[in-house]
């Protein structure tokens, strides 16, 4: 009876008031996160949860710190204040070895792909397997080909990274990121540079991977359409704050001008397209005077 009740609690309540959501259901807990470059703070006290087995998207205008957030979650950067917990372990407190152990269970798809340029596609995908698992060559070969088949690039196994387009490189990087069947995968702008066909394939691939292997996915993106179509839960961040969160429907129904402007891609509104500056007239007048 009690469980039935707690299951009915909507997932949109503020975190503290979500009795059904035990910490076990959350793979990542971010609390009071603060991160600054010099005196410019990218994040100033944000709270955020990533639920296990779901696709969570983090959206926001470019330059708001989405990539930075992924680097904080994976321990490549360290928070100035607050905590980041992944699978019950606090990232800041982990030793280097423990962090590496955790990273073996995390995959990350970099914005640029980050393939090793001196290895061909096959060896790039085989790289994490060779580093962390002792497999006979024949098994390894099958495994790599299966991963490449999943991203539709088995035929490209012998190519070098310089022979790939940006979109293809990103798909090879995806095959590499899932090579060790991680518990969680972080996608940094997976949709940029994909043509309509591979976009569709990629969207369903991310969904499939997530559902078939109970992986947890975090997608960071500014592509509103693709991202909302695939995500189970959305966070929208800007100016170091979380502006909105909820299921795609809830966020789409959000009343705030800010969120509506972002979701519908209107050029101006409460969010400014322009980086803060004096007026254009002032700038032009100054350059005349010089």
């Amino acid at each position: 009876m009690a469980t039935a009740q707690s299951e009915q609690v909507p997932a949109t309540l503020p975190r503290a008031e979500r009795p059904g959501m035990t910490d076990k259901q959350m793979l990542v807990n971010v609390r009071g996160l603060r991160f600054c470059h010099g005196d410019r703070c990218i994040f100033d006290g944000i709270d955020l949860d990533i639920q296990r087995g779901r696709i969570t998207a983090i959206m926001g205008p470019s330059g708001t710190g989405k990539t930075t957030l992924l680097k904080l979650i994976s321990g490549q950067l360290h928070a100035d204040a607050g905590t980041v917990e992944v699978d019950g372990q606090t990232i800041q407190e982990l030793s280097r070895d423990a962090l590496y152990q955790l990273r073996i269970r995390m995959g990350m798809l970099f914005q640029s792909g980050a393939l090793l340029t001196d290895l061909n596609v096959f060896e790039n995908v085989a790289f994490p397997i060779r580093e962390h698992a002792k497999l006979p060559e024949s098994v390894l070969r099958k495994l790599v080909l299966i991963k490449l088949e999943a991203v539709g690039l088995r035929g490209a196994a012998a190519l070098m990274p310089s022979q790939l387009s940006g979109g293809m490189a990103r798909r090879v990087a995806l095959a590499r990121a899932i090579a060790l069947d991680p518990m969680m995968i972080m996608y940094d702008e997976p949709f940029t540079g994909q043509d309509p066909i591979s976009m569709g394939v990629l969207v369903s691939l991310i969904r499939q991977l997530n559902d078939a292997s109970e992986m947890t996915s975090i997608i960071v993106s500014h592509d509103v359409t693709e991202t909302t179509s695939i995500a189970d839960y959305l966070y929208i961040i800007a100016n170091g704050q979380i502006m909105a969160e909820g299921t795609p429907q809830e966020v789409a129904a959000n009343e705030s001008d800010w969120v509506r402007q972002f979701m519908q891609g209107e050029p101006d509104g409460p969010v400014h397209y322009h980086y803060p500056a004096q007026t254009l007239e002032q700038d032009l007048l100054q350059s005349v005077r010089h």
Binding site: Y100, I104, F110, H132, R176
Partner: peptide
């Protein structure tokens, strides 16, 4: 960074 993320 990619190597770092592959725990290498």
């Amino acid at each position: 960074s990619g190597l770092e993320m592959m725990a290498v």
